[in-house]
Amino acid sequence: MSELIVILLSMALINNIILVRYLGLCPFLGVSRELKPSFSMGMAVTFVMLVASLATWVINHYVLIRFNIEYMYIIVFILVIASLVQVIELFIKKTNFALYSAFGIYLPLITTNCAVLGVTIINMMENYTLLASLVSALGSGLGFTLVMAVMAGIREKLDLADAPKSMRGAPVALITATLLGLAFFGFSGIV
């Protein structure tokens, strides 16, 4: 049990997927301008991470390891994630239109979101059990959502600031990320 809590906290805060592992930077710099879409994007990513971790764990253990072709994991994982995203998109479009309009538009972007593939590869390299993989996916997703939301909150204010012309946009966002990253170092002592 305590091991699962360590994984959850480590993935969400200490080794935050955006600030420490640099995964999912495209949506971080692109989408995180307003609070609401950032939050929806975060939820969509968390959901896909959970499903993808489940699917890749099963495939890794019952196909790749069994037939001794673990080295094919890159091509297999990316195809699994791409088809999963398609299926999820179709499914929520048909069943729950409110949900679809909330985060459906972000789903196609997620296929090439390195955070999702990153989490599944980390789970595989760490030899996590199924439960640990799911916890690690949950932690990563929550950490992703948290940083996206915090960043959006800051940028809503930042847009009003009178920054020098050459600093506007990406540079100032990156420097905000620096400060956030330093702040997150404060979490390293909590486990």
């Binding site: 050459s166 600093m167 100032v172 990156l174 400060l179 956030l180 170092f185």
Partner: peptide
């Protein structure tokens, strides 16, 4: 050591971008 650590990457890229634009 901060420059080797993850936040240092953001800082260096941000400042480099600003410098090249300036």
């Amino acid at each position: 050591a901060m420059f080797i650590l993850p936040p240092g990457g953001f800082l260096v890229l941000g400042l480099l971008l600003a410098l090249l634009r300036w």
